[in-house]
Simulated scan of single mutants.
Amino acid sequence: MEDKFQKQVSAFSKVLLSFLVLILVLFGGLYYWANRTPEPKIEDIPVEESTEDYDKIENGIHVATGFVDDEGMEATIQNCTSCHSAKLVTQNQMSREGWKATITWMQETQNLWDLGANEELILNYLAKNYAPTDKGRRQNLETIEWYELK
């Protein structure tokens, strides 16, 4: 009789323990959800997209990109600025061979597509408008009156 009683007590203990664990898990979850810090809400910032100035040229410069207005500018904008900023082009000065090598490098390593017939137009544009200049960082100082320090 005692053996049967002990089995019933043991079974009851297991059920009671399972019930207590369940209660603790539920209350723990409720406590977690009640006291968690809410994720910050990202508010949509309205972006004013204006297409009216996109084709605007001022003083021979395409306002939206900073490219020099010349034959091949549109093809260069379409093929170059779809992957990177126009500033990456306008800040560089390379020979035609340098630009060709850069395009080849982008095709081999950066997944640039085959430019087809546009390649010659783009190379002509870049070599003409973004070629190295003969000037250094500044011109030589020529009209300076030098004096000796004593």
Rank of each mutant, 00 (worst) to 15 (best):
D114E: 10
V68Q: 05
N92P: 00
D69Y: 07
I77D: 04
L123W: 06
Q139W: 08
T76M: 07
S85R: 10
K100T: 13
A127N: 01
T90A: 02
C83L: 10
W105S: 15
T104R: 13
M73P: 00
T133G: 12
N129T: 08
G72H: 01
Q78I: 11
E108K: 15
M94T: 00
D69H: 11
N124T: 08
E97S: 13
Q110W: 05
E119R: 08
S82D: 07
A75R: 09
N118I: 00
N111V: 03
F67Y: 06
V68D: 00
T109A: 06
A75N: 11
L88I: 12
A75E: 14
E97R: 03
L112M: 11
T104E: 15
D134H: 08
A75Y: 05
K135G: 10
E97L: 11
R96D: 05
D69V: 03
N79F: 10
A131K: 13
Q91I: 15
Y125G: 09
M106F: 10
T109S: 10
G72T: 06
L115R: 05
N79M: 12
L126I: 03
M73F: 04
E108S: 13
A127L: 03
H84K: 09
E108C: 01
Y125S: 05
W99T: 05
K87P: 00
T81H: 05
S95G: 05
K135L: 11
G116C: 04
A75Q: 14
T76H: 07
N79G: 10
I122H: 04
Q110A: 10
G72D: 04
G136A: 09
W113R: 14
T76N: 01
A131I: 01
V68S: 02
G98V: 01
D69N: 10
V89Q: 09
G98W: 04
